[in-house]
């Protein structure tokens, strides 16, 4: 049961609202900036609808909040993990790569996962082709796949997507 993409007008409106919020932040709420801002927001929103047409995958507010909480927590783990390895005299790393089959649909969700993984503990997205994601690992003796699957689950929930059971991994 695939939902239909939003209409271009609804997408334009939603993106214009988002851009207006960003403009408000950028101009630190200066009221005199709104005249110019309104023109820029309309142009950028129109251009974004042309370049990135409405998608069937939309972020869900609750899922996005849960994703952000997960992201913040794991950012700390990732930073501390790298720091610990760097400060250990024996430099405990064992670099390598694994390739996994993603269950996320292409487009926004896969893109968000690949970028998220680059900031999560021990993983770095190297290559994404179709549903095959190659991840460079700082330490291949760690369990990499559970971490990737957890990130995948978080991204799926942010987009309101239900994932099929895992297909397995090939090294």
């Amino acid at each position: 049961m695939q939902p239909a993409p939003a209409s271009p007008i609804a997408t334009f409106a939603a993106r214009a609202v988002m851009l207006a919020v960003v403009w408000w932040m950028l101009t630190v709420g200066d009221p005199s900036a709104w005249g110019f801002g309104a023109v820029v927001i309309a142009l950028v929103a129109a251009l974004s609808v042309l370049l990135f047409p409405p998608s069937i995958h939309r972020l869900r507010p609750l899922g996005l909040l849960q994703f952000m909480a997960y992201f913040l927590g794991h950012s700390v783990i990732a930073g501390v993990d790298v720091a610990r390895r760097l400060l250990t005299p024996s430099l405990p790393i064992k670099p390598g790569e694994i390739t996994l089959s993603l269950r996320l649909p292409e487009g926004g969700p896969r893109w968000l996962l690949a970028n998220t993984l680059s900031l999560m503990p021990g993983t770095l997205s190297v290559h994404l082709e179709e549903n095959q994601l190659t991840v460079h690992c700082l330490d291949t003796s760690d369990a990499i796949e559970p971490g990737v699957r957890q990130a995948e689950f978080q991204v799926a929930r942010a987009f309101g997507i239900t994932l099929d059971p895992p297909e397995g991994v090939r090294a």
């Binding site: 790298v82 670099p95 900031l119 770095l124």
Partner: peptide
């Protein structure tokens, strides 16, 4: 990390993760 890690990919690990947290 740029000095201690042995190759480009591991150095990127150090830069992205540590700077994310540092800036945060």
């Amino acid at each position: 990390g740029l000095f201690r890690f042995p190759d480009t990919l591991t150095r990127i690990h150090a830069l992205t993760k540590a700077d994310n947290l540092g800036l945060g």
